[in-house]
Design a protein around this nucleic acid. Structure first.
Length: 434
RNA sequence: GUGGCCUUAGUGUAGUGGCAACACAACAGUUUGUGGUACUGUUAUCACGGGUUCGAAUCCCGUAGGCCACCCCA
């Protein structure tokens, strides 16, 4: 038996190169959950305050849901999906974003007929096949809000406000919302045509990427960071100027709501976002402590139709849990770690160990958590462990005590010890730790 | 998908072709059943696989992972 344990230990202590976690996918250990838990807590608090309820959908969906939702041309769908073929030849994809799944669930369940608007939040793993780097992973968690079945601009603003509040509550500095409107079915084509016309006679002067964008995804022309394209970007037509009456009114209204709550925003005419289903409002959230976006979202009034549902307006946003966690970690924010163990039980010898096992169970039944160290046999080793745990009381059970049916109660601060009958020990400890 | 840098004990690092080192952590011990401090000891196929060389952590090639810049975004 001992031999076996030793052998296992040896293997475990050796660095095993047989397996690593898959590229861009990470294990989360207790030390990191300090930050994740903190984020979840704030996120749930804000969700409750603004009336969002939790939803979870399957990690995989039929691949067509994403293709029709986000659009085949979008980066996320065309290049970044993990695809799974089932034995029955169904093709599923690990979700590269939550929104289509949430919309699908809302439609499928019939909630779209009784809960209007549907306000949901989620904290869920997302999968994208990408080249990983800091703050960019193949599996990561998004915390997001969705408001389904309403076209009211107040909800665009509320989603942005909820994201902003969350970052603010977490004491993240320099939060800035970049916002834009990309119009609707009626006015966007007209704008895109204007944009194309503007760039058409400049094909020789713009970078190669932009030439490609001109035909494939003209809105992206405005994101280009190439030096030679900057002058054109500056003078290019801006979507805001070509919005139809109703889009213009909607955008203006969103901004007015944001002004009411003093969310810091700037209008960024180059912000277009990659998913096909966006319409009208699009936005991203930034902070001074992180290079990329901490979150983003927008209105998606055409998604429902695109995936086979009725016409249904909606708006949503998602934030990167790991990105926020990395800021909290970087700042080394003091999150008090409660040492919830106040009592440590030490045993000596096999008889006492059995008895100790039972006593810990009695404490559990009485609602008191008792720490132990079953892998250490020496009194000294166990005491050291107890010290490290910073417990207030240590219970010591040896041969002698088992024989006499008592247990030693040691106060770790004063060093005082007394014998207590085993029958009374639970009550005695409960009384002292109050 | 493109290009660059990196990988040495659990962690952070030294070591530029000749005995793998330091700090912290962990574990064990410093005479019998009493913690914190101190001291001693233990802990590495130098990411993996090949090559060059009398000799490789060190030079070369490949692979994997990490990081960075594109791309894109959370």
């Amino acid at each position: 038996m001992d031999k076996k344990i030793k052998a296992t230990k040896k293997t475990a202590s050796k660095k095993s190169n047989a397996f690593q976690s898959p590229k861009g996918m990470h294990d989360i250990f207790p030390a990191d959950f300090v930050y994740i838990d903190k984020i979840e807590k704030e996120f749930k608090k804000i969700s409750a305050a603004y009336g969002f309820e939790r939803i979870e959908t399957p990690v995989m969906e039929n691949i067509h849901l994403f293709e029709r939702g986000a659009g085949i041309a979008s980066e996320v769908v065309s290049k970044q999906m993990f695809i799974v073929k089932t034995k029955s030849e169904d093709v599923l994809a690990l979700r590269p974003e939550m929104t289509p799944g949430v919309m699908r669930a809302y439609l499928q369940s019939g909630a779209s007929r009784s809960q209007i608007p549907g306000k949901y939040f989620y904290i869920s793993p997302i999968f994208r096949y990408e080249q990983p780097q800091a703050g960019r992973f193949r599996q990561f968690n998004q915390a997001g809000f969705e408001i389904l079945h309403s076209d009211d601009p107040a909800y665009d603003a509320q989603v942005i406000l909820a994201c902003y509040k969350m970052l603010e509550e977490l004491k993240i500095k320099g939060i800035l919302v970049k916002i834009n409107s990309i119009g609707c079915k009626n006015c966007r084509p007209g704008y895109i045509k204007k944009l194309k016309d503007f760039y058409k006679n400049k094909t020789g002067k713009i970078c190669r990427d932009c030439s490609r964008r001109l035909s494939e995804n003209p809105l992206r022309l405005l994101d280009c960071k190439e030096e030679k394209c900057q002058p054109f970007k500056a003078s290019a037509p801006q979507s805001v100027d070509y919005l139809c009456g109703s889009c213009k009114h909607h955008f203006k209204s969103v901004l007015e709501f944001l002004n009411e709550v003093t969310v810091p925003y700037i209008i960024d005419s180059s912000l277009v976002r990659g998913l096909d289903y966006y319409s009208k409002t699009v936005f991203e959230l930034f902070a001074e402590e992180f290079a990329g976006a901490l979150g983003g979202g927008g209105r998606y009034d055409y998604l429902s139709e695109a995936i086979g549902g009725p016409r249904m307006a909606a708006v949503g946003a998602a934030m990167g849990v790991e990105r926020i966690a990395s800021i909290l970690k970087e700042k080394n924010i003091n999150i008090p770690v409660k040492n919830h163990f106040k009592v440590f039980l030490i045993y000596m010898g096999d008889e006492a160990k059995k008895k100790a096992f039972k006593i810990i169970s009695d404490f559990y039944d009485a609602g008191v958590a008792v720490k132990e160290s079953f892998s250490k046999e020496s009194l000294k080793g166990q005491l050291r462990m107890a010290d490290k745990e910073k417990v207030e009381y240590v219970l010591i059970l040896g041969q002698r005590e088992v024989f006499e049916d008592v247990i030693i109660l040691r106060n770790m601060i004063t060093g005082n010890q007394e014998n207590i009958p085993i029958k009374k020990i639970v009550d005695e400890v409960k009384r002292r730790i109050k």
